[in-house]
Design a protein around this nucleic acid. Structure first.
Lengths: 225, 225
DNA sequence: TAGATTGTTAATCGATTAACAATC
DNA sequence: TAGATTGTTAATCGATTAACAATC
């Protein structure tokens, strides 16, 4: 059982999956040893930051050598809970839900998608890509009978808030939110992880606009000379 | 033309889409006026932070009154470039690409998806949801003839790096990356915005694991007493 | 051994929060 | 006018970077 010393900052947590990804890339290209310097170079981070980040969780390196890639990879995987066999359910089997079920490999990341729930009678009782689709009415009983660590929320916008209330009332404590609705009730103890496509695209838009403005300003300045 | 004074921090930029979303919610519920205090309460931020954030871009409020919701909304929309009519192309019309085309409303966020590109002859020349699918071979000419502000990268993993090189060689300067591959070449000037599902799920996994550990620790402690 | 690189402590930098005069 | 709330300056807090002794 990993002993988490201090509360680790969210910034650090968000970098862990990137480290994992990069270590997998290194493994694929046959690299079995890496220094914080080289890792930093490839990720655009300082060696200091990388060593600081790792030191939140333990001592994974060796002086004069660096880090063993597969060993470090496995430490990070374990920190992220990838070896805990989480169970997830999906709420809402519309377009996004189906796309996720078909294309996202939950098990690769330590999650097993054990059931999906919907309100439409025509799909209830069927299977989709190996996942049984049940009625929302069966949810409470299902949660009684299974350990469920997270709910993937892929319902239409309008349903987001009521369904969330229903989920939390039934003991769900973690939600992977695809609804593009602000769920984070400031008081609530439920873990919410948002995947807001639009937020992502909008911030890209900001930077595109900024760059365009900088160019325009530079051009205008050149004009004046 | 908005005069961007200082370089605005990435943290601030990432909060702008949340403000936008919340302001839309307020509009929907008929609220036309809001204070930084109330906005902070609903978003889990301090009033100070909200006023600081806005003040990076101008003075949008009024003492003793607060902010006019639609006016503020429109300021933020403009800061994010939503009124600039960006053009985007999609590279790779597989499952994710199709799911995005069908379900994501690009135009709602200021982007127009004007073409998609793929290598599979059987779909080249067809339309998908109003978007023409062209051959990758036609890309260079297409870019010559159209202003393209961003590329949506939805190709298979293996293709991610070579396609990115090809795109940047042809003058693409912004990539919305869905490939789950680390693209951010530290030296490159290309804007990359990543949508890494797995990163998101893994960080949720961290917090689920952390919570489970805390409970186990608490239970063990109670045991010992 | 000498060279390399860690883990950690201290210094710096930046972001958030608090305070308050300005003013609607 | 009195009360409310902004925009901004100053204080605090936290995260990143630098430095270095420990050691493989």
């Amino acid at each position: 059982m990993p002993v988490k010393r201090v509360k680790v900052s969210n910034n650090v947590i968000r970098r862990l999956p990137r480290y994992l990804r990069k270590l997998d890339e290194l493994t694929d290209s046959g690299v079995s040893r890496v220094s914080s310097f080289e890792l930093g170079r490839q990720l655009g981070l300082t060696p200091s930051q990388i060593r600081q980040d790792f030191s939140c969780f333990g001592e994974f390196g060796q002086q004069g050598y660096g880090y063993n890639v597969p060993a470090l990879r496995s430490e990070i995987a374990s920190i992220l809970g990838m070896d805990r066999g989480f169970n997830a359910i999906m709420i809402g089997v519309g377009n996004i839900g189906r796309a996720l079920t078909e294309n996202f490999n939950f098990s690769e990341w330590g999650f097993s998608l054990i059931a999906a729930f919907d309100v439409r009678p025509e799909i209830i009782g069927t299977m989709f890509h190996g996942v049984p689709i049940l009625s929302m009415d069966e949810l409470a009983r299902f949660l009684d009978e299974h350990r469920v660590d997270a709910a993937v929320l892929t319902v239409p916008k309008e349903a987001a808030v009521p369904v969330t209330e229903m989920l939390t009332a039934n003991g769900i404590e973690a939600i992977w939110n695809f609804t593009n609705v602000e769920l984070t009730a400031p008081d609530s103890a439920v873990l919410v992880e948002n995947v807001h496509f639009s937020d992502s695209l909008l911030s890209l838009g900001y930077y595109i606009a900024e760059r365009a403005d900088e160019r325009a300003a530079k051009a205008a300045k050149a004009e004046r000379v």
